[in-house]
Write a protein that binds this DNA or RNA. Sequence first.
RNA 1: UGGGGUAUGGGGUAAUUGGCAGCCCAACGGAUUCUGGUUCCGUUAGUCCAGGUUCGAGUCCUGGUACCCCAACCA
Length: 567
Amino acid sequence: MSADTSAESPTSSAGDFVADAVRADAIAGTYGGRVQTRFPPEPNGYLHIGHAKAIIADFGIAEQFGGVCNLRFDDTNPDTEEAEFADSILHDIHWLGFSPANVFHASDYFCVLYTWAQVLIEQGLAYVDDQDAETVSAQRGGYGKPGIDSPYRERSVAENLDLFHRMKAGEFSDGSRVLRAKIDMQSDNMWLRDPVMYRIRTRHHFRTGDDWCIYPTYDWAHGQSDAVEGVTHSMCTLEFEDHRALYDWFLDHLPLPHEQPRQYEFARLEFTHTVTSKRRLAQLVREGRVDGWDDPRMPTLSGLRRRGYPASAIKEFCRSIGVSKTNSTHAIEELQWHVREQLNKVALRRMAVLRPIELVIDNWPLDVAGNQVVEHFDIVNNPEDPSEGTRSVPFTGRLWIEAEDFEVNPPPGYFRLSPGREVRLRGAYFVTATSAETDDAGRVVRVHVTYDPATKGGSAPDGRKVKSTMHWVSAGHAHDATVGLYRHLFATERPGETTGDPLDDIDPRSREVLVGCKVEPALAETSRGQVVQFERLGYFALDPDQPMFFHRTVGLKDEWAAQQKRL
RNA sequence: UGGGGUAUGGGGUAAUUGGCAGCCCAACGGAUUCUGGUUCCGUUAGUCCAGGUUCGAGUCCUGGUACCCCAACCA
């Protein structure tokens, strides 16, 4: 299936029941062939990987059927929302490669919502309740237990209208009154037990300023905003399934400018070892456990971007998992597979040594001044893409190699360097180990080898093979760099497995930083922010904010550790 | 305790709507390879349970089981 290796190559995408619904509507002519969706984030934090699924579903459906998808900020709660968050959200959507047809805000409709609330009041379908939140909640009853009517439920239309106007005028204190829909306090669906539509909140809103002191709730704002905009298919996550009856109820009683939209619910995207809860991510930022919303350890889109995840990998992953109603937790490795898949085609290859030991070539020549000869080799930048060309890498008789690339007593299946064995130094020469020096603790610190001048460039004229090709960095030319290895972002988040403070679950070993690893000089020419593959070590992103600091994006095959264990 | 949902190999996701259970990841085996990467070939393994209808059931019927969501003036 590699005939088409372009980034746009469509992999088989999983099924999508919303697409089926759209098709059915097209056949039935429900919306006159119109398809309109919307992505409705609340600007109270940065977008995380979980949102990517919704973005791709919303924009994807519109794209697939030649419809439009708008961005609509669900900014109905002035307590938590900020312009900074709205900006970051728009930026992340663009990064993923989508362009909203329009950028709307629920707050654009505060006036319509206010008018429509009066429409409901006039029909006797909404009333002002003077009770406090606790009382209202208690009266709501419980599962299997009916609720009881508020004593204010039967107020006259005139009185409700008057009270509602005065709520808006700021005559009442915060929390002293609410506007409620008059539906059914006996309903099995808790959301139909006279839900709150407006609450009094004397607060500054980041867009409407101090124009309002009453704010609509999610339920009163969402479906109505969809209806005003002309949305046809309104997708949200599974926990809103019970709200659909309310969504429909409101719209059934209002003078809508378009055909009535319908809500569809799909399962939220969850990963192993990953926190996808905006509340907890906000907590990490607030308490300074991370450097910010875009910290590379964060599962936010901005964090992943900084970590080197290509947007295409995230999109391909989402397409592969489809849109279904089954609650499921995806192995984070699955996302990483897509990251490697994309990166393998484009990441430049470089050599680096994370845990260096010295390799001395005893028969390496000296020049007339008695210094070691320096030879330069042209090494291919990306074997997957010859057009990336080669780079010149200096080579001498004193090199750094990876500590784990040498074993005094090689276990079975180990085919790198060991005494008497010949291996290839990538792009340079074949070398054969002769002896090793150890420190006081018995660790190998220096390996002595001899090289075969006939194998210059890395291949033997007599056709003999070696079982291993190792990476290396010239000791006299190496740059020191710092590498951050992110083992796990956060602890496993599984319902039932979490006890106490969520932050206690974070693995303190989640970040391992290696200081002073050795990288080849050509790395310095690689532009910042780019992802390179360190030969055999995995993919690393050069942090644009920190000179010579690399974040591990993903390993090649993270099973290396397991293989080691088996040996 | 009432209501709303969901169940397909180890993890996900399909099945022309009643017609050979397919695909991706993982695992395992082999081939290629100047990265223990990539690529290629192959193997293992699945319809929640119990009945029923039918020539034929993942799909339809009956009855169970498990898990998720709902009693915010959050979204």
